[in-house]
Amino acid sequence: MHSAIARTIRRGAAALAVAAAFSPLAAHAWEPTKTVEFIVPAGTGGGADQMARMIQGIVQKNNLMTQPLVVINKSGGAGAEGFLDVKGSNRNPHKIIISLSNLFTTPLATGVPFSWKDMTPVSMLALDEFVLWVNAKAPYDDVKGYLAALKAASGDQVFKMGGTGSKQEDQIITAAIEQKTGAKFIYVPYKGGGDVAAQLVGGHVTSSVNNPIEAVSQWRAGELKPLCVFDNQRLPYKEPIASGKSWADIPTCKEAGLDIEYLMLRGIFMPPGASKDQTDYFVDLFKRVRATPEWQEFMQKGAFNTTALTGPEYAAWLAKAEGTHKDLMEKAGFVAK
């Protein structure tokens, strides 16, 4: 499912969504009999929370479920609280959780015991991209210039990388850049992606690896500029954003000479012991959510990678991602003893 589709498909999708809303719901072998709790292992206002509330709104507006869907934040211990709650809710089909990279990073960094294998994977919704941003006033316009300046910097001029949280995705990417180039960063952890973007605009840090949606408004306003995207192919969104450039014009970091790839999972899990019928219900639900025009527009605004997997492919992806995280974090020395 590749995604530049935006407008052309949007109309078709709208028709589809309307049809879904008015036609009787497809018969399911199992349906929720009470309120379904939608756990967010992060605080209110973050990327995962936004997506969960977006889904809640789409479900509500298009009547995709007969029972209410309720978003609950359990952000304690870098998300460990939420995952442990789901892990401990054996055979409870009225609970789902949306994941972010902390599914892999938190157990490694803190030693709190949980992994994706403790839960029932349902469906991948999308992958969040990471882009290397610098202040628009920076003297370089491409990765080559950036890397040259990075290596040349010393003393007070050492590059400061702003990021969200500690030993999580942003710092992992930072460590990966250090490993590839041999240069050193000062990594400064902040609470949220919006703060990081603002700190970059204010010149308090030198660069960031913000998600597209966190920094796009500053790009449009000419305050920040993107250097490269940490994916294996360019983004498909061709609509111009700032000074004639679109997401599709940003080179991948690999083609720009910085061979690093990192994507963040936005996926859904159920507690352990969920039956096939129960997971099928939610797989189908999220398939319909993804078909709505609201979702399509959200994907485009946030320049998401719209890869969506289920079943064995999803499990295979998870196993691979877990291995990659373990490897990256071990090399960076982020694993709790």
């Binding site: 936004q50 603002a198 959200f298």
Partner: peptide, 24 residues
């Protein structure tokens, strides 16, 4: 596009959901 309070953070998410881009 930076929230000055937790409530503003949620409103910020709202802007995105309604299809608006907060920022300059």
């Amino acid at each position: 596009g930076i929230p000055g309070s937790p409530t503003a953070a949620v409103l910020l998410g709202g802007l995105l959901i309604w299809g608006l881009q907060p920022g300059p």
